[in-house]
Nucleic acid binder design. Sequence first.
DNA 1: AATGTGCCCAACCGCTGACCA
DNA 2: CTGGTCAGCGGTTGGGCACAT
Length: 301
Amino acid sequence: MDGNKDRMIDSGNFHGGDDDGDLRRGPWTVEEDIALINYIANHGDGRWNLLARCAGLKRTGKSCRLRWLNYLRPDVRRGNITLEEQLLILDLHSRWGNRWSKIAQHLPGRTDNEIKNYWRTRVQKHAKQLKCDVNSKQFKDTMRYLWIPRLVERIQAAAGTTAVDGNGSYGSVAPPLMNGSDFVSTSQVTPSYASENSSSGGGSSDGTQGSSVSELTDCYNNFGCFSVGYGQDTAPPPPPPPPMQSSAVGFFNEGELDFQAMEQSSCEWLAEDGGVDTSENFWSTAGPGADYFWLLQQQLN
DNA sequence: AATGTGCCCAACCGCTGACCA
DNA sequence: CTGGTCAGCGGTTGGGCACAT
């Protein structure tokens, strides 16, 4: 994993010829990155097409913008998605669906692209393993009753504030959640985003304001569910979850969740990425891409 | 060692909305 | 109102890597 950190170094042209108007495509070279960083340092960003021309880059403005926002921006955070971030992503996605940029606003340093990739590669993969659609009720229930409680537990364990009953089984925790008064099931989220405060710089004045991890975990412990910001820009709270539907697939047998099987899968998932490190910071230590950025810094100095 | 397979993620593409003349 | 330009967003692609066979 993390293997392609520096694959774009000096990798030359991508997609071969396709030179519509002398424009380059594909991976960025160190020289291009330096040119872009230097130009933005001196002139700021924005007006990307103009920027691309003035910086002497044979790239579209779009490409420059994407490169800057997703990779070169100094505050971009790299490395593994932490448990806290996973929790936030699950929660925010349950409210907003695939509104990656909106979700990314609540994860400082993370890009919409990164979150989108995380969702597709990890979450959707597990939906596939469960043999259910990522938008299906079954999958949402799995997230809601298993993965999220498990994440909360692990976060708290990492913080040394264990507040979960001893046996660690969520088979016993899940039923109280069944009142489900607050937690949003995606199917309930009507995409009525019009009422949100859309001041693009803000990001903290909508329903999720302050949707920090600690608030999420606190809320979860107090009420057995999330309720942060719910209902401010969405439909009324969903009704209590009905019993599992029959015609179950994957972990849904005879109309009931197979919690054992689900929990096993949950453990595998959380162990495989969440259990590694919870605070890896790409910029501060050797991590994915560190060698590339080291090289970049050397070039800039 | 060679080959096959799956995963990850940077970058691209197409679409949409905002803005302006 | 219309047409053009630009920025931003979400979906998709494909190269490279790690691991399995």
